[in-house]
Design a protein around this nucleic acid. Structure first.
Length: 879
RNA sequence: GGGCGCGUAGCUCAGUGGGAGAGCACUCGCCUUACAAGCGAGGGGUCGUAGGUUCGAAACCUACCGCGCCCA
């Protein structure tokens, strides 16, 4: 902890050398590397402090920082920085994943530029080449994270392909295999004919696309049957036609055979409950090797599966269609069928759901192939139970149902990928069909005929281990002991299924039932200012680096955090970022003012009974704000944290406290000394409270203000309830009301801000603020009445306060009459509403006493205002 | 088709039983010695529609309309 114990006299650093405007670029570059060098972000596993751990959702090694990262990192950094200040041993662990498909694509594209394919290099050389690429161009995002100010522990940076993490992958694979939770089977999987690999269900994105629905007649005469399909080309692989067993139209055909056109093959008509009689003709073609539903029908009826396309989705059936791509084959086959008079109906366009590769958007081809799977049933059950029994909470809670819906209906997970970049499956096949799964400390079998499985594992398989593999698992390392389980997982709701569920399953399995985190804090997606998704095709993508250049990292962070309502999407715009920059500048100038006026953090804060009402008021407000911010941090209400601090800083501190302090500071003496101490204290705490969200500007200002080393490790402010002072708050509120009312009059009358007006104030004692008359006069620029005082206007301020002003005859009677009439109307409306309520017996009888009393007070106040407003109106000279 | 959520000021969003709020935008007046990236003042909303519960509904219930997302 750093305690502020600066002993220099205020005069030795009038403005701390602060310029009139905040220049973020200059400050930020200077600060970050110093933080890292000082080791503030390096966690100590031997520490006695309670741990606070966040693992970064590992960005893709090929990626660069986009607004979504900037957003997510801002939230994680804010949480981590606060905990660090609170005295936790805070670890925010950075790293990246190897992004199998994406990275392989990048390097293959480079090779293609030299007219080479990965096969020209061979597996070993290719993988070498990828490592080389990573060393040269990978991880651009890591440098960008520094610009954003991420307080991550760089000494613990991890990469999913590192030796330790690879060992974790092999270890868990072996354990799952031995527990029969990993198996190899021939199944229909999602295949990307461009990436040439299998994909898991969640790597497929479904969209409604325009296609065609073609009805084809199979067979002849009375025994013919019409099927409807969106994929006519797959008919070459049909091995049956299916109808619903109850469907009267086709009952007589069940068990018969029809001839499959263009092939001469005869296929059976089978009855299956899963056929929807209402869809199309009620009869469906069955292509077990190219459709997941058909595959299941095939399984139920013992149908053969005919694969008719190769891995690039090119037809392989000998004949006229051989060598045609699936999209060339479709019209060719429809044409051939039409020639035979077999096309009964055609519908174009026909909208239907089509799956696409999440990585390259190519339409996936369901494909029958031999792959490795995780049996997710028991793992997913445990992952669901951990949330069900409250060991893990999802924030916001609305997402809990979605989480259950997913984990409770999870399909087995296809984990093999036909790639070279990734963790190779640790299974060897022997010459006599032996299958051996090899653990990390075991020697793979050698000798003739033994070969390792060619495939690698899904990237999510390794990132699912992230919360413990990065801490040293499977070794029981000091880090694992100290920092597992992690405290909170911060991530977007879009990868609840991709990643969160995987970590839950693996964490519970590998760590003896201890879930990888206590809290899952979900955030939304960053959108443009109209709530539209950012996309290149819309041209509405905003680059966070650009914002950081122009407005500063703090402004970028504040804009993102300020929009962060739990689980909700975050719209951002340049204008809002400008506003955030303005806020940083406001803090800058408030501190500048404080330094110019000798604000200090030296010595004890005077006891409340020695402080002025205004000093007690701002300290009281500070306590409320501190308590609110604490509560908002605990519930991940980042938008509210920002809002609370923004308004406290701008409205309470700058607009009122600083202005109210000016006459006190100018007056000198002990009163000024006390206010200098309070001003120093308030800014000190305000900057600490803001530091987690806007680390750079707060560091710069706080160190100048306090003379201490850094705010990064300064103690987080505690709420001092003894400083809460309701009386002071009420007095200042009353004072503000009078000042505002006078300013309103001045504005309506077109009086210049600097123009002094003579006025008599009466009734201040009603609300106990007669002692503040001088302050009120100072802020409202009112002179004391002289002998020739003659009021030309009267203001009625709620609370029974009256301000008589002498404008030396220059009163704009029209404007004043309009103002008073508006006030009278408002007061009349208020009084009428209150009277109506109080005249309602049911209300008086049933509403709580406090509510009734409040309405009575409001009525009294409104009637008092009304009397004085009416009098003022009557006193206006007639025009 | 199933599920979740949203509809509040021009825009983006808070507010979840007792006087309709914020930021930005807008209007008017100000270079007032911390800040024009600023200061002061102001205008602007039948809280999607229709019922219901209640002394009292933006909030709770029901239906409908519109929009978004996830899953099938």
């Amino acid at each position: 902890m750093t305690d502020a114990t600066d002993t220099r006299t205020p005069d030795s650093r009038p403005t701390g050398g602060l310029s009139a405007q905040y220049q973020p670029g200059e400050v930020e570059q200077r600060r970050y590397e110093r933080w890292v060098e000082a080791g503030y972000f390096t966690a100590d596993s031997a520490s006695e402090k309670p741990p606070f751990t966040i693992v970064i959702p590992p960005p893709n090694v090929t990626g660069s920082l986009h607004m979504g990262h900037a957003f997510e990192h801002t939230l994680m950094d804010a949480l981590t920085r606060r905990r660090r200040m609170q005295g936790y041993e805070a670890l925010w662990l950075p790293g990246m994943d190897h992004a199998g498909i994406a990275t392989q694509n990048v390097v293959e594209r480079q090779l293609a530029a030299q007219s080479l394919s990965r096969h020209d290099l061979g597996r070993e050389k290719f993988v070498e080449r990828v490592w080389q690429w990573k060393a040269e161009s990978g991880g651009a995002i890591l440098g960008q994270m520094r610009r954003l100010g991420d307080s991550v522990d760089w000494s613990r940076e991890r990469f999913t392909m590192d030796e330790g993490l690879s060992r974790a992958v092999q270890t868990i694979f072996k354990r799952l295999y031995d527990d029969d939770l990993i198996y190899r089977a021939e199944r229909i999987i999602n295949w990307c004919p461009r990436c040439l690999t299998a994909l898991s269900d969640i790597e497929v994105e479904h969209t409604d696309d325009d296609g065609e629905l073609v009805s084809i007649r199979y067979g002849e005469g009375a025994n013919s049957i019409v099927v409807a399909t969106t994929r006519a080309e797959t008919m070459l692989g049909d091995t049956a036609v299916a109808v619903h067993p109850e469907d009267e139209r086709y009952r007589h055909l069940i068990g018969t055979e029809v001839e499959l056109p263009l092939t001469g093959r005869r296929i059976p008509i089978v009855a299956d409950e899963h056929v929807d009689p209402a869809f199309g003709t009620g009869a469906v073609k069955v292509t077990p090797a190219h459709d997941p539903n058909d595959f299941e029908i095939g399984q139920r009826h013992g149908l053969p599966s005919l694969t008719i396309m190769d891995e690039r989705a090119v037809v392989t059936v000998p004949g006229p269609f051989e060598g045609l791509d699936r999209y060339e084959a479709r019209p060719a086959i429809v044409a051939a069928l039409r020639e035979q008079g077999r096309i009964v109906a055609e519908k174009r366009p026909y909208q239907h759901s089509v799956g696409h590769c999440a990585r390259c958007k190519t339409t996936v081809e369901p494909r029958l192939s031999l792959q490795w799977f995780v049996n997710t049933k028991p793992l997913a059950k445990a992952a669901g139970d951990a949330v069900r029994d409250g060991r893990v909470t999802v924030e916001p809670a609305e997402f809990t149902k979605r989480y259950f819906a997913w984990v409770d209906n999870m399909h087995d997970w296809c984990i093999s990928r036909q790639l070279w970049w990734g963790h190779r499956i640790p299974v060897w096949y022997g010459p006599n069909d032996e299958v051996v799964c090899v653990g990390p400390d075991e020697e793979p079998p050698t000798g003739a005929g033994w070969r390792q499985d060619e495939d690698v594992l899904d990237t999510w398989f390794s990132s699912g281990l992230w919360p413990f593999s990065t801490l040293g698992w499977p070794e029981q390392s000091a880090d694992l002991t100290k920092f597992y389980p992690t405290s909170v997982l911060v991530t977007g709701y879009d990868i609840l299924f991709f990643w969160v569920a995987r970590m839950m399953m693996f964490g519970l399995y590998a760590m003896d039932g201890v879930p990888p985190f206590h809290t899952i804090a979900l955030h939304g997606m960053v959108r443009d200012q109209h709530g539209k998704k950012m996309s290149k095709s819309f041209g509405n993508v905003v680059d966070p680096l650009d914002w950081m250049d122009r407005f500063g990292a703090d402004a970028t962070r504040f804009t993102l955090a300020r929009g962060a309502n739990p689980g909700a999407d975050v719209p951002v715009s340049e204008e809002w970022c400008q506003g955030s920059r303005n806020f940083c500048n406001k803090l800058w100038n408030a501190t500048r003012f404080a330094l110019m006026n000798g604000a200090t953090v030296a010595g004890e804060l005077p006891p409340s009974d020695e402080l002025s009402t205004v000093d007690r008021w701002i300290l009281s407000r500070l306590q409320h704000v501190t308590a609110e911010v604490d509560e908002q941090f605990e519930t991940y209400e980042f938008a509210k944290i920002c809002d609370t601090l923004y308004h406290f800083a701008w409205d309470d501190v700058c607009d009122w406290y600083v202005e109210l302090s000016k006459p006190v500071l100018a007056g000198g003496g002990e009163a000024a000394d006390r206010t200098r101490r309070v001003l120093g204290h308030v800014l000190d705490h305000l900057l600490r409270l803001l530091h987690p969200v806007i680390p750079f500007v707060t560091e710069e200002l706080w160190t100048v203000l306090t003379g201490a080393e850094t705010v990064v490790t300064a103690a987080w402010p505690a709420t001092e309830t003894a400083r809460i002072d309701d009386a002071a708050e009420e007095e200042v509120a009353a004072l503000q009301k009078v000042v505002t009312e006078v300013r309103r009059f001045r504005s309506d009358q077109g009086l210049r801000p600097g123009q002094r007006v003579t006025a008599a104030l009466t009734g201040l004692g009603n609300v106990g603020i007669d002692v503040h008359e001088a302050l009120i006069r100072s802020l409202a620029r009112l002179d004391r009445p002289a002998a020739d005082f003659a009021a030309t206007a009267t203001l009625a301020v709620t609370g029974g306060i009256t301000v008589d002003l002498d404008t030396r005859g220059t009163i704009d009677v029209g404007a004043e009459r309009a103002r008073l009439e508006k006030d009278r109307a408002a007061a009349e409306k208020e009084a009428a509403q209150c009277r109506a309520k109080l005249g309602n017996e049911a209300f008086v009888g049933k509403a709580p006493e406090a509510v009734v009393a409040k309405i009575k007070d409001r009525l009294t106040a409104a009637e008092s205002d009304l009397t004085r407003i009416t009098a003022a109106l009557d006193a206006l000279p007639s025009t």
